[in-house]
């Protein structure tokens, strides 16, 4: 799965926030508040990856189990999908 729009991630008030830029900002003008894990995954999701690939990247970056990593990926993807931000 891949993000529907081209996002950049910036730090605002000490926390990562994503906004769509370029022509995509006409379709999505909101901002997405993230935590560090979310920002890491968001950065990867500008390119297409499966849930398992994202979970594996999370395991490599952070010291978490595969099960927890997959749960975090599915949680984020569920939230993004409900907001219409995933190009599934």
């Amino acid at each position: 799965m891949k993000l529907k729009y081209k996002f950049v991630i910036r730090e605002v008030g000490g926390a990562p926030v994503a906004v769509a830029v370029g022509a995509d900002s006409a379709d999505f003008s909101g901002m997405v508040k993230l935590n560090d894990t979310g920002a890491f995954l968001f950065g990867l999701m500008n390119e297409h990856h499966t849930e398992k690939e994202l979970a594996a990247a999370l395991c490599e970056k952070y010291d978490v189990s595969e099960k927890d990593a997959l749960a975090a990926v599915l949680s984020l993807c569920g939230r993004l999908s409900s907001e219409g931000l995933l190009d599934e």
Partner: peptide, 9 residues
């Protein structure tokens, strides 16, 4: 939120 990030148009 007190502060927002946006894109100028």
């Amino acid at each position: 939120d007190g502060v927002i990030l946006g894109v100028p148009v």
